[in-house]
Simulated assay, not measured.
Amino acid sequence: MSIQWNGVMPAVTTKFTADDKLDFNMFEVNMKAQLEAGVSGIILGGTLGEASTLLEDEKRELVKHTVALTNGKVPVIMNIAEQTTRGAILAANKAEQDGAKGLMMLPPMRYKASDHETVVYFSEVAKNTSLPIMVYNNPVDYKIEVTLDMFEELLKYDNIQAVKESTRDISNVTRLINRFGDRLKILSGVDTLALESILMGSDGWVSGLVCAFPAETVAIFNLAKAGRIDEALKIYRWFLPLLELDINSFLVQNIKLAEVATGIGSEHVRAPRLPLQGSEREKVLGIIAEGLRTRPTLPDYKNL
């Protein structure tokens, strides 16, 4: 299965049981909702997926289970976030062996690599896997920016195909298109800039709140791409307070609370994360409750 790098691709949460095991029953509930809504791919093991807390065996089990569950309907993409080049290559090889069809890759973790070191890091992984790669460019959270000049070097590898654009600079979408045209697919990686990014020409949206609101997320994307901007904007304006739950250090807890409210997730997180408490919890629950109270009726967005 080739990856088109377009549409809505959820960066899904990892579901846990109360005794801290992988919860594949609840995971399946969420996957069915994502597929029914019309997502274009499933991304595992990102920040929202609590990848830094997952054991190696759990990551592999998660990939294998998702591949079986999606059954070829959409590609399964595994996030690579490693400290060493060797570790990243091994992780990519394991994901490929387990049935993943693509990779999302962060720059080296913890060490702030130079531009040259970062290019070599991505290049070595690209040379050692046949899987297509989406570079996750998020200098705000991970302190390393993949610049246009760095992409110029990276794009000599055919399997480096896309960028999850999370610089927070909306004009960067236009810079990327002007420089690389269709050679580099662009997916918005910031929920609160998603519609703006799509209107500037992004090919897709890697979303967080889609985990709780899959239909609304895909509707916004499809309507915008169909030129029905007013309808997309109306849903997006309703969605924005919820989308802001994704640009917060408690994004995992926030989005899992939203999944509980929509019936397609649980609140269980893995320590050191803990469920929200006190005034912060009440604030988030209030945002979610208002979103549900005013939840819009969607047009037939699947047949545009």
Results as ranks from 00 to 15, higher is better:
Ile77Tyr: 04
Glu61Met: 08
Gly38Phe: 15
Asn30Ala: 15
Ile42Thr: 10
Val39Cys: 12
Glu58Ala: 08
Asn79Val: 06
Leu69Arg: 09
His65Cys: 01
Asn30Ser: 14
Gly49Thr: 04
Thr70Gln: 07
Ala33Cys: 12
Leu62Trp: 09
Leu54Met: 12
Gly87Asp: 08
Met78Val: 01
Ser40Phe: 07
Met78Leu: 15
Ser40Glu: 14
Thr66Cys: 04
Gly41Thr: 03
Pro75Phe: 06
Gln34Thr: 08
Gly49Phe: 00
Leu44Lys: 06
Ala68Cys: 01
Ile77Asp: 01
Val63Arg: 00
Gly46Pro: 04
Gly72Glu: 07
Glu61Cys: 00
Ala33Phe: 01
His65Lys: 15
Asp57Asn: 11
Met31Asp: 01
Gly72Asn: 09
Asn79Arg: 00
Lys64Arg: 15
Ile80Phe: 07
Glu61Gln: 08
Gly46Trp: 00
Thr84Gln: 11
Lys73Thr: 07
Thr66Asp: 04
His65Asn: 12
Thr84Cys: 03
Val74Gly: 15
Ser40Gln: 14
Ala68His: 02
Thr70Lys: 10
Lys32Met: 13
Ala33Gly: 01
Thr66Lys: 02
Asn79Phe: 00
Gly87Thr: 05
Val39Ile: 15
Pro75Ile: 08
Ile42Met: 09
Arg60Gln: 08
Gln34Pro: 06
Lys73Asp: 09
Ile77Thr: 04
Leu69Lys: 04
Asp57Gly: 08
Lys73Gly: 08
Val74Phe: 07
Ala81His: 10
Thr66Ile: 09
Lys64Cys: 01
Leu69Met: 11
Arg60Ser: 13
Ser52Leu: 10
Val74Glu: 04
Gly38Tyr: 04
Thr66Asn: 05
Gly45Leu: 07
Glu50Thr: 06
Ile77Asn: 06
Val39Tyr: 11
Thr70Leu: 10
